[in-house]
Design a protein around this nucleic acid. Structure first.
Lengths: 193, 193
DNA sequence: CGTCTATTTGAATGTACTCAAAAGCGGTGG
DNA sequence: CCACCGCTTTTGAGTACATTCAAATAGACG
């Protein structure tokens, strides 16, 4: 089961006793998502946040011209959700889609609040996770404002070498903030070296 | 004094009793920074994180060509620091500079850890702050990958109308991820409407 | 008043996009 | 097993967005 992966992840930041572990397990649910299925679409109420135990997902938005822009990919051992919608319990603005057959653990907003109250250590756990996410996003912002698309592409290949086998060029382009056509041109140029 | 502003900010997320308040106050220090003075430079050890009670700061990096790229501005009622350096206690990679005569409250890394242990509510406080920061950064990323410079400029003017009076065009450009020359051209174009 | 930095302006160039069409690739059904 | 369909990727030509370099102008500060 995927619960070990979650407990392992939690255990890297806080230590739980048996009762706390049992309580966490009582709040979570397992869910399978098929490729191209959605856990969330814009306008939906966002009840859950998700921890991926297997597979790969993407969270993205569509602009007024119908173009997709990918906020992030999520793979095993990562949390993913439409955080703005989840936190403020307002209608979702993102799509949350499985790119592979995916297994997630979900926890409901109200259960997470209960968890914070009964096991305050989880405040620490998520504080650390959000801190780390902040740092990662910070780096992406600095890259977006200071590097060309080519530099950003080379950087992500270096940082996540496995990602290229897993996602399409179209999605890579939607993550980098360029068109698929331009990414194709970059690759041709880079290949000729 | 600026301590009220900090206590007020904290009070919007958690409630402290007298003893906890006194403990927090025992850990903080007040500091004044003159315009164009630095609280941190690349290579420095980053001992503190800062809460601004008056004034305005910027945190930025220089690339290999000497160009500055601004990660964020901080004004009254905001926390600011080189978070990667502060968290991992590795050498700073950012400049932290006052753009106006500025007053900050600083707290040391080890004191913050003590605070987490003695008053775990602060885990919650910073969890919420980092969550909100995550959402704000997320929006900036989505804009960077989906909007033109003109659209981003108009958006920030709308979101922070006061900012334009406070910071130079050069800094605005370094935040948007464009050259000052191009921002000037955009403004001319927008003015002629 | 003079110096230093920020902003503006213009021309040339590079980066990235649009539109259109062709080629490749995977899945599905006959 | 092959033919077809839909979607992704490639290619090319033309255009728009953004930068560079250089020089002029405007503002801020001592």
């Amino acid at each position: 089961m995927g619960a070990e992966l979650l407990l392992d992840n939690v255990g890297r930041h806080i230590s739980l006793n048996e009762e706390e572990t049992a309580y966490l397990l009582s709040l979570i649910e397992f869910k399978n998502v098929e490729r191209k299925q959605y856990l969330l679409k814009p306008g939906n109420h966002c009840h859950h946040t998700y921890f991926i135990t297997k597979g790969c997902m993407r969270i993205y938005q569509c602009d007024s011209n119908g173009f997709e822009h990918i906020a992030m990919f999520g793979i095993e051992d990562w949390w993913i959700s439409d955080l703005p919608a989840f936190l403020t319990q307002t209608p979702a603005t993102h799509y949350l889609e499985a790119l592979e057959p995916t297994e997630v653990i979900q926890i409901e907003k109200s259960d997470l609040e209960k968890l914070y109250l009964r096991v305050p250590k989880f405040e620490r756990y998520f504080r650390i996770l959000h801190q780390n996410a902040f740092v990662a996003q910070h780096q992406r912002i600095m890259q977006n404002i200071s590097m060309t698309a080519e530099e950003r592409y080379l950087f992500i290949l270096k940082k996540y070498p496995a990602l290229e086998q897993r996602i399409s060029q179209k999605h890579m382009a939607a993550f980098l903030g360029i068109t698929p056509v331009f990414l194709s041109m970059l690759r041709r140029k880079l290949a000729g070296k």
